[in-house]
Design a protein around this nucleic acid. Structure first.
Lengths: 147, 147
DNA sequence: AAGTTTAGATTACAAGTGTAAACAGTAAAA
DNA sequence: TTTTACTGTTTACACTTGTAATCTAAACTT
């Protein structure tokens, strides 16, 4: 069962998730081998992080002999999406464009990525409003200063 | 002096910052009036958050009689940008396009926002690579499973 | 069967957050 | 001038996070 959960995954936990997402199903040993050196983490640390993710039900476990096989209960795309929502919720709607332009500037994009994005934008353009309404709490963005 | 600081602003603190950014310079009273009801926070809570932002040197203060005038020491755009970098650092470069497409789908964008973004993309396209190289730690993204 | 390795569970502990009450000093009001 | 109100400071406390050592039970070696 897939939860588009309001679960928060911390930065360190995210590193673990990347390994799980990439490998689909892993043992703790694999995660440890992959991250121990690269992150400079002790085995213990990685075990703790895995344990927390299991507690949060972000990782599923299947017992296999004495060890567990871990799989992700949320997928990367959904998780990234909820991050997107979070960041967009932090600025006035009127600045959404600006936020995305930052992203585009920072990101490494291939020609085909760019083509794809332009296509999405063009499509979105068809139903886009002339102007985006601000729905901030009055006092939390400049829009309201004018009124 | 403007610090593009590695300072972290928590979610609750961000709400305060929005008020400061929007109003350029504010008193604690103003922040309290704006956020108390909307956030369901007690006056005390807001004072604590302001205090912490001052400690972090994210807010500057100027004494004015018995009260302080608060101004931001970091700007919204830079802060948003550092968030962008953070989120991009959490996925394989090859997925940057996907991340941005999520953003575009979630965001409310006006026709002129969209035009602007397309323009940026077209420009970026001129120097874009055919394919983006993955630079993940082996095991942390699918790219490496193949090699 | 006894010893050793290993996987997961338990415990630890400091820093950061969300949330707030209590306090102290100064300015304003009576 | 005494009282009141208000602003900033101190203290509080539980939960999360980063980071890890230790413990326990099972499995693998010899």
């Amino acid at each position: 069962m897939q939860t588009t959960a309001p679960v928060t995954i911390s930065e360190a936990e995210w590193e673990i998730m990347r390994v799980v997402w990439a490998n689909v199903s892993v043992t703790s040993r694999e995660v440890i081998d992959i991250l121990e050196d690269k992150m400079g983490w002790k085995e213990s640390t990685i075990k703790t992080l895995i344990g927390r993710l299991v507690d949060k039900e972000v990782l599923e476990t299947k017992k296999e002999g004495r060890k567990f096989i871990y799989t992700a209960n949320i997928n990367e795309a959904d998780t990234v999406k909820s991050y997107s929502e979070d960041i967009l919720s932090r600025v006035c709607n009127k600045h959404n464009g600006l936020v995305i332009s930052h992203f585009i500037k920072e990101a490494q994009l291939s020609t085909s990525d760019i083509e794809e994005l332009i296509k999405i934008l063009e499509e979105k353009s068809l139903s886009a409003p002339e102007v985006v309404p601000c729905d901030c709490v009055p006092g939390q963005c400049e829009c309201h200063l004018v009124n």
